[in-house]
Simulated scan of single mutants.
Amino acid sequence: MAAHDPRHRSVTARLLSESVLIALMLGAAALELDALDRPLARALLVAVIVLQGCWLHRLYVVAHEASHRKLWPEHPGINDALGQLLLLPLMVPLRIHRKIHAFHHGHNRRDEQTSALDTFVVTRRASPLNRALVRAWCHVLWYLSVFACGFFVHSLVSVLLFLAMPMRVARSISPAFKGWRVYDQLRALASFGLGVGLHVGVAWLLGPRAWALTMGWPLLAFAWVYSLLVYIYHYQTDYGPEVRFHVRGLRRHPIASWWLLNFNEHDTHHRQPKLPWYQLPEHREPLPSAHAANQKYDGIAAAILAQLRGPRIIERDARASKSGASA
């Protein structure tokens, strides 16, 4: 594990240096291209903004290591400070990310209504037209979620709920709030304020246009990249109590594996969430035979495009839906 691996500190130092340095270089490149004001420069600027969005996703993935307390495991305070600094451009409090992500790991696709983003459980309609309209609406919501930044909006709403919702109301909304305290909420609000302050500070020091080129538009690009990728490892996998196995791994691609810190080894991560990112490939093993069908897609591009098939829609009569909700 990370705490006993003599490589860990040096690997983490290189990872942090690389991640921050490339982020700064991309921001500087955007400002330089904007100053040129030429057609080719404008085209390159669009590409650089997309790359900045992709690199914000890299910062998010490094912070994911901190969320699992494995970025700097021997010093929890340093671990959390580093993770929170990486999340400031996204204005995401580490405490909230950790809480939501822990629920994902503990309840991943436990049933069709728990932590299963690609599954819509709807009330059965008597009219064929109404049924067709409901199914069409489910598909629209799914395509907006995956291909039009919808999953980012979903995550943003979740963050805002954790920040603002009274505890008694919050716990009635979702079991993910279990154990969430006013103290956690106040700390998360402070972290969120630091993130907002970073954005305001960049706009004040460098000007609104510089903020848009280095933070605003890249954040929108991140929202798109995040939404495309966030569910490719769980889309159309199975359900049940063995929550570690409702997942797939994807074929290694050198550039994508470097960019996403071996996130393609997602099945290994769910089996052993305390493994640091650089140890995941050497611990890969096939899914148990009962879950082997989850490996229906191989590469990242194929897994992204597979989401065009749409959601799974489960129709239940109103009485069954009410009893399920009360349970």
Rank of each mutant, 00 (worst) to 15 (best):
L87K: 07
L90Q: 14
L90T: 07
I96V: 06
K99V: 15
I100L: 15
H101A: 15
F103H: 01
H104N: 00
H104W: 05
H105M: 13
H105C: 01
H107Y: 04
N108S: 06
D111E: 00
T114H: 08
A116Y: 12
T119G: 00
V121D: 07
T123Y: 10
R124W: 04
R125E: 15
S127F: 15
L129V: 12
L129C: 10
N130H: 14
R135K: 14
W137M: 13
W142L: 13
W142R: 07
Y143F: 15
V146C: 02
F147E: 00
A148L: 01
F151V: 00
F152W: 15
F152S: 06
F152Y: 05
L156S: 12
V157Y: 06
V159T: 04
V159P: 03
L163N: 08
A164P: 07
R168C: 08
V169Q: 05
A170P: 11
S172Q: 15
I173T: 02
I173Q: 10
P175G: 12
A176P: 03
A176T: 06
F177L: 08
G179D: 11
R181Y: 11
V182H: 05
D184N: 09
Q185E: 11
R187Y: 13
L189T: 07
G193R: 06
P208V: 09
A210C: 12
W211R: 00
W211C: 03
M215H: 05
P218W: 11
L219M: 09
L220G: 12
A221C: 05
A221M: 01
F222N: 08
S227M: 02
L229S: 03
I232S: 02
H234W: 11
